[in-house]
Design a protein around this nucleic acid. Sequence first.
DNA 1: GTCGATATGTTATGACATTACATCATATTT
DNA 2: AAATATGATGTAATGTCATAACATATCGAC
Lengths: 133, 133
Amino acid sequence: MTAPLPNLTKNQSLVFETLAEAGAPLSAYTILDQLREHGFRAPLQVYRALDKLLERGLIHRLESLNAFVACQHKHSHGHQGATVFVICGTCGDVNELHDQVINDQIMRRAVEQKFQVESAMVELRGRCSGCAD
Amino acid sequence: MTAPLPNLTKNQSLVFETLAEAGAPLSAYTILDQLREHGFRAPLQVYRALDKLLERGLIHRLESLNAFVACQHKHSHGHQGATVFVICGTCGDVNELHDQVINDQIMRRAVEQKFQVESAMVELRGRCSGCAD
DNA sequence: GTCGATATGTTATGACATTACATCATATTT
DNA sequence: AAATATGATGTAATGTCATAACATATCGAC
């Protein structure tokens, strides 16, 4: 069942490594700037790699930040359902969690409406414990 | 035209009416185009009005669409917590709902992490019953 | 009327993302 | 081997979303 996924291409690897090493959300243009020394010249080189990485679940897009992060859960490709992102607006730290209660309730409400969920996003903005007043 | 709400300025009323009549998400620039005949000339006129309307809870921002919708719940200004948006990618229809279970669970998880939630977004993308295969 | 706060008008710029087209690499078919 | 198909890449141009900076106007409190 677990057929090994094909290797990442050079550009995909570069983009993924950049995100993984940052350990924080980066915009596509920030990634571009960091990869200029590796020959990147245009936004599309980044966006194309990001698209493939998103497809494979290796990274996530933070809609409220227009930014991308490496997935924190190494073996979560099988994970179905919503990912909850907890985003500190002060230090920029992002935590990713998967919550079964939220997930189940989302699906319950969707079924009520006969709505077929293709993707679900939950993003919390606020202050982490380290940045509290 | 429905009657403008009290305490809204002229620009705020125009923007709100545009959204309310559309009954669907509009981008700031779409609103701008629709209000050119009323004297709007620049994006900032729209964004400033949108900011005030967001503050008052009369409209919502859909992060995954970079668009705005009038709040569907006329008397929900006191409503605390997450709003769930159910967005059909085919017909563009958007439904807004408030779910106490999701809300409570979000707050429970936030408290666990000592995270102070300032805002929460939940957006479901998929297909509505009318657009199902 | 003066002052302070808020709203508005305008230009320019910054930030995020895609279209369109050309080229290159690799694998499969004939 | 040549032809073909597919996917990745390179590049320029453009499209879309949002804010900075500065000037002017409106309105209420005093």
